[in-house]
Design a protein around this nucleic acid. Structure first.
Lengths: 190, 190
DNA sequence: TTTAAAGTATACAGATCAGTATATTTTAAT
DNA sequence: ATTAAAATATACTGATCTGTATACTTTAAA
């Protein structure tokens, strides 16, 4: 047996939202392309907003897990992993279905503050930041939180510019900048 | 006499697109809130897409001019201006109608490559990058283009994180990182 | 003062939007 | 085999979407 209907709906909606955004995609096309009726969609999700939220959570966990796993397999020390972040990002930017950060897209389409959708986006970035901080500590940075936040800015900037230029080159630029920031943070540690 | 109808439409549409994005805002509400009929809207713009494009161009020129003017008035040497970029960004993040970068929002909603809308977004970022490069050269960086691109990554990252956290603090984090990158680029110049 | 452009008011077309209703069929566990 | 949940097919509501049509009025320049 294949995927559950719920999982099928989440996957289809994710692919469509990634490419076209949220308001441009209707529930009809999501149901149809999932091989499911609209009634079934509304059986699993009370509303389109709830589906969107479920998609964000679904994607958040899978993406971050995959990203971190890639980093961990590619480099074996916290110091090396700090730069490997940008190698993994480069692979991501090269994927066919890369259309920028889904969460940033959601923030741009749902302005109401303190809503479930916006909070999910912030939480996702926070969890990634936590991983950066863990690595920065392990790498012996003098102020690991500051270094992690700076590297996160480079990462987010690289994501944006990869989308703008339809090129993964920003990942290399960010990696070069990251090396400077890391060296600086470690030398001030002495 | 007040603004021309065309200008009024551009301003209204800009404010609405900035907050809600593009697909979530209909031409009816734009016309109505401009105090204009839909017929008049379609007299000035052939389609909604053309209105969107006009809004992007309108905003691009005004925003960049304003941004650069602020930088130039706040600091008087290229070196100081390189860090002043992030002070001006902080003011921007503090504005009531700050909802992230309009162009990044457009990229998230219009996936079709090589379209007028996407090209306008890329062009806008290119022009800002050119200004960064001009400053980096004037500041005596060893590789001014590289420094400028790195600072642009920090800037874009700061914009994203300001929206995520609804806080201008990312501007200060980016400024601190920028200082390190600038110092490094100037010391390797010797 | 004539005249053409720009504007208004209003309604409409045809499509699509989110979400619901009805009635039937499949599925899976007891 | 029975039964309840899950799914189907289909149609519908009422709203909203982009874009157009018709008929009338204002505006501003020649």
């Amino acid at each position: 047996m294949g995927l559950s209907k719920r999982e099928q709906l989440l996957r289809t909606a994710l692919a469509l939202f990634k490419k076209h955004g949220f308001h441009a995609i209707g529930v009809d096309v999501i149901a149809h392309r999932s091989g499911v009726t609209k009634k079934t969609l509304y059986h699993h999700f009370r509303s389109k907003d709830e589906l969107i939220l479920a998609v964000l959570r679904y994607y958040d966990e899978r993406f971050r897990n995959h990203f971190i796993r890639q980093v961990e397999s590619r480099a074996k020390t916290p110091l090396r992993r700090l730069t490997a972040l940008f190698d993994v990002a480069k692979d991501w930017f090269n994927e066919n279905d890369f259309y920028g950060c889904l969460f940033v897209g959601a923030l741009g389409e749902f302005p109401e503050p303190d809503t479930a959708i916006r909070n999910a986006c912030r939480e996702s970035k926070n969890l990634m930041r936590d991983y950066f901080r863990e690595l920065a500590e392990g790498a012996g940075a003098s102020k690991p939180k500051e270094l992690a936040d700076q590297l996160l800015l480079l990462m987010e900037g690289a994501i944006t510019m990869a989308q703008v230029n339809h090129s993964p080159f920003s990942a290399q630029q960010a990696k070069a900048a990251a090396r400077v920031l890391i060296r600086n943070a470690r030398s001030s540690a002495q």
